[in-house]
Amino acid sequence: MIIDILSSILLLVGAALGIVGGIGIHRFPDFYTRLHAIGITDTLSALMILLGLALQAGWSIAAFKLAMIFVFLFFTSPTASHALAYAAQHSGLKPKLDQK
């Protein structure tokens, strides 16, 4: 019962954070800042949703697979972000920096 409530909270908050990230990629002004908004959906949002599901799964193969999904996301998403940023900078895309 407590586990059910906890996993619901994790799931819903995680999904809501996804929407926040989605708003972020529309509010932020340029490519590099948008990468930070994408970072939210890739890390905390994914972590909370998968954790919420894992609580429902209990100790089973499903929980292991959720953990594997998380590990893969955990390693691939920063690598993809870095590759994107590197390629963008390499191609000459200039970030809008704060002039102060």
């Binding site: 590099y32 930070h36 970072g39 939210i40 955990f74 920063p78 870095h82 940023a85 900078q89």
Partner: peptide, 16 residues
């Protein structure tokens, strides 16, 4: 180090 920086939102490693 570079991946940890990218994983924390708010910072992205562009070049290593």
């Amino acid at each position: 180090y570079a991946n940890s920086i990218t994983l924390t939102p708010g910072t992205v490693t562009i070049k290593l």
